[in-house]
Design a binder for these strands. Structure first.
Lengths: 238, 238
DNA sequence: GTTCCCAACTGGTCCAACCAGTTGACGGGT
DNA sequence: ACCCGTCAACTGGTTGGACCAGTTGGGAAC
């Protein structure tokens, strides 16, 4: 286990984390009013500004609605929160089952990655195509160092997402990568299967380079779904 | 044009908006150092606390890296920002071309919606299936009031995303809906085509109700891509 | 020339006061 | 008895200033 940079959580980070967890875990329910800032400050034994910063961030995540003069109310995060909430939840603790959440995020990575590969094969300019081919070769050269390959793999996908020209895909990928992969909660066995499939990545790169969009999508699908467990939570019915 | 609730932007909102736009538009480049908090405070003529709140939010969005003692540096948002940035950008101004961004988000909605419909048909429990069928009927009853249908349509999709059991999809959908649809920047003609296809929605609902996942995905695809313009930015090559 | 130390930055936290909206209870008018 | 305006007592929003805590870089000591 290698050493890792220490992270200093600021006071407002801690307040933010506690409040976020309390809301997501259901301690506060939708439309409940949060205690006032002054009260929270004395409860957490911190300054009111720290509480304010935390509340602002909760608001930005879509967890609360703040209104001057009135109380701060809890929103239904399943309705108002954005994808960044998933990232925030994965990074800290088991408020929601992290394993499930990571699996969901990997599903989404596959969903987006496939379409991005398809679009990239259709739209990317020549320079981008060349960069992707080169990146895949650099990725292949790193075998079998899984850690290095993992990073190179992300670089490859980032180029693909760049080339597909869809900014939303790119940003979503950032949320997912930072959340799911950086935490390394992905089943190592399956992740390894994906990473070690060098020829699959080469086929993907050449499909993109040649503009064969359907094949690119197919290669992407087979790569990205290798890490996904088949079992559904409650199996098919009827 | 109906009246609309006034929105009061707080001081830190304004500072946040200006800094975000400056970063995304490239006024500051990656690894540039932002001016110090005290300097920003005098520049914006606000208190330092307001600046701090804004910077915190920029950090949460993935636009800057703050480090005590050191300077606050600008990150490459194409690498570090999450999907919520798209929402934030759409809501205010044309820092990035909003039309393009909205189109990207509609693409992503389609990408996710199709998979969610498929998963929902496979995994949802009976109660969820019934709720979806009912919601589609309520949606159908509202024709031809496009505004009301738009809201009901979102409610339908929310149920589908709930039923598919993928929290990441659900959260991403929130980001997209709040960003793209609420702003109503979607070409009205195409949006109307989608909404008025009541029978298409009925087919989708019954496919989900019966667990026919492939057909559900197909129906979802035809509904969700109706609003998408075919032309790619730079067309297929080689 | 190298090394070490400290002054002068940076952001982080706190206190205390006051501004600005919202809410609800209380009291006068109908 | 009911309605309605008023106002006090909340809520969050903003400000100023002080001090703590890390980082940085230049200059003194070696």
């Amino acid at each position: 286990m290698a050493f890792v940079p220490v992270t200093r959580a600021s006071v407002s980070d801690l307040v933010f984390g506690q409040l976020r967890d309390a809301i997501v875990s259901g301690t506060y329910r939708t439309d409940d009013t949060l205690p006032g800032e002054r009260e929270l400050a004395t409860t957490f034994q911190v300054n009111r500004h720290a509480v304010r910063e935390a509340l602002r961030r909760l608001q930005q995540l879509g967890l609360v609605r703040i209104s001057q003069g009135g109380a701060t109310r809890v929103l239904n995060w399943r309705v108002h929160a954005g994808l960044d909430l998933a990232l925030s939840l994965v990074r800290s603790g088991d408020v929601l089952p992290v394993a499930t959440l990571v699996r969901d995020m990997m599903d989404m990575r596959a969903c987006i990655g496939v379409d991005a590969a398809r679009l990239c094969a259709r739209r990317a300019d020549d320079a981008a195509r060349r960069r992707i081919v080169r990146a895949v070769e650099e990725f292949a050269d790193l075998a079998p160092d899984l850690t290095a390959m993992g990073e190179a793999n992300i670089a490859v996908w980032r180029l693909i997402l760049d080339g597909c020209g869809n900014t939303a895909y790119l940003l979503a990928f950032n949320s997912l990568v930072a959340g799911a992969l950086a935490v390394a909660e992905v089943p190592p066995q399956r992740r390894a299967t994906e990473l070690l499939d060098v020829t699959g990545h080469r086929r993907l790169a050449s499909a993109i380079a040649d503009g064969r969009d359907v094949e690119a999508a197919e290669e992407a699908r087979s790569l990205l779904t290798a890490a996904l467990t088949a079992p559904t939570r409650k199996d098919s019915r009827a």
